[in-house]
Each structure stands twice: as C-alpha cells, then as structure tokens.
Amino acid sequence: MVKEKVEFITGNDAVAYAVKLARVKVIAAYPITPQSPVTEKLSEYVANGELDAEFIKVEGEHSCLAAMRGAGVCGVRTFTATCGPGLMYAHENLECVHRDRTPLVIAVPNRSYSSLFPDYTDSMCEATTGFIQLFVESAQEALDTTLQGFRIAEDHRVLMPLMVLYDGYVTSHTGATVRLPSQEDVDKFLPPFKPYVVRVDPSRSEYIQWERPGVPLQEMEHEMAMTNAKEVIKEANEEYAKIFGRSYGDGLVEPYRVEDADVVLVTMASMTGTARQVVDALREKGKNVGLLRLRSFRPFPAETFQELQKKYGFRAMGVCERDVTHGCNYG
C-alpha cells in the first residue's frame, strides 16, 4: 500500500517537493518569474536541513548552467528551475550539457519572452539543445514527472539532460490538490544516481579534457540516446504506475476518447484540461472527436502518432499550440 499525504499546493511547490524527495545534491539557481517560488522553496529546505544539498546562488542563468555542468561531471544529482528569458540566457551552456552526457534536470514553468504569461517561445528555442522535454498538464503530473525525469535522464541507456515543462501561472501558481508520495516509496522508484563515469575529482583543481569522438559520431551517439529515451520514458511511466497508481498515456502521448474518432485535437500541457471538456461536450452532441496530448516533445514520438492513427483510424489531426514561428504558417 502506497503511503501518501494530500496537500493543496501550487505546481511550483509540487516540483520543489519532488526535488527534495529525489535527494538532489546540488542546486544552482537565479530567480525569474514565474520560476522563483521553486528555488525559494528549495533554499528553505536546504536552510532548515530537510534537504542535504549544496545551494549555489549564481549571478545569472548562464553561470547557473555552468555550475550545474561542473556538478554533473563530478557525478552528483543536480537540479535548477528557470524559464523565459532566463532559459534563453542559459542557451550557450544548455547546448554543452548533452555533449557532457550529464543528466541534469531543469524545471521550466513556460513563459513568453515579451510578457510574463505562458507561451512556449522559451522551451521551443531550446528544443535543439539535446534536452529531453516532457510537457505536463497538472501540478500532480509536474511532481510525478520530476521524479520520473531523474530516472529517465540518469538511465545509462540515455544519459541526456531533461526539462520538465509546465505552464507558467496556470500550473505554476494555481493551487491544486496534490498527492505527495512518501520518501520510502520514492526511494524504491528512484535509486541514488550512479554516474556512468566520474570524470572530475572536485578536490583537485585541474584543466580537464576528455576523449570524445569526432562530431558526426557524437551526434550519432546522441541520436541513439534520444531513441533509447522513448523506451525509457515508457518504462518509467509504467514503473511509476505500479508503485503510485498514476500514469500518463504511454508516457509519450496520452490519448483521450479517441475510440471511433473521426478527428482529433493535439494539445500540450494545461490547455488539455479545457480541451477534454470540449471533447466531452461534443461527444454528447454525437460528434466523433478525440484528443491526443503530446507529453514528450523531445524525443518526438512520430511513430506513436502513426500507430494511434492506424489503430483508431481518425482522418485528421488539428494542432493547438501556444507558440508561433513567424513566416512559415505554423508554430
């Protein structure tokens, strides 16, 4: 029987709680709205002794990622949260993280560049940086996915960094009923981080350069890791369901009322809740509509969409996005 505690907390607090349960060892952070409550809560946990971690206050997100890379190559579990312009400012170091094969986890309450409200400009800008990107619908899923995230990223078949993405304000600042797992159960799901190789001894200061294959071979390795990640995401989703009783589709895509659907809407993150209600309302009127929620944006599960289309036979998919790329008719 799973032990859990029910609380009424925001998505940000749910993520911070998950990070504590994950026994993270290094947190580097710089404040930015709407992320700040995550790392504020974590600094409280560290200050009052609930979390035994190093909390590094950095002067910006670029340094934040540099600090995390350092911690990552020393072989410890590492976390930060950032979003919007902060995430973009970290871009240069984000791009390096997957080349180190350090499985960092970053929580991103999505935020527009030009306003405080949620759109996906920030995370889409970083979709090519080798990060796994899992978009979540609710505060509960943000907690669950943060725990799954460490397990997925640290899996030796993957060893790629990961972002947990949820909508700024809508999920980050909305109070919700959230089931908090016990430390005992989380320890069963998420073992301590076993680095594939520890490359740096932090007690010695030295310039390091490790052997890496040439760029084409590197890129092939990363591609294999991302392909493996699809299976590992599915496994983590299944294992999590066995212990905690919650799962999200197959981990990559979550279908909703797609049986006999003629057309389906493809959504991401918090807009899905509202879309579910619309699907229910249209179904009541006899319209055969359904919904596919894309959870894993990177790796992108194109074959899962194809399989679902074959299985359910819907004629068309409409995509609803919180993002726009100007000049190419789509987001």
Partner: peptide, 13 residues
C-alpha cells in the same frame, strides 16, 4: 482548497 482536500475532495485555486 486545503480544507476540501482534507475532506477527500479535489480543489483548485
């Protein structure tokens, strides 16, 4: 929201 959660319901604020 917390009071509702304590009573076994779901809340949203």
């Amino acid at each position: 929201g917390l009071a509702a959660s304590i009573e076994g319901k779901y809340g949203q604020g």
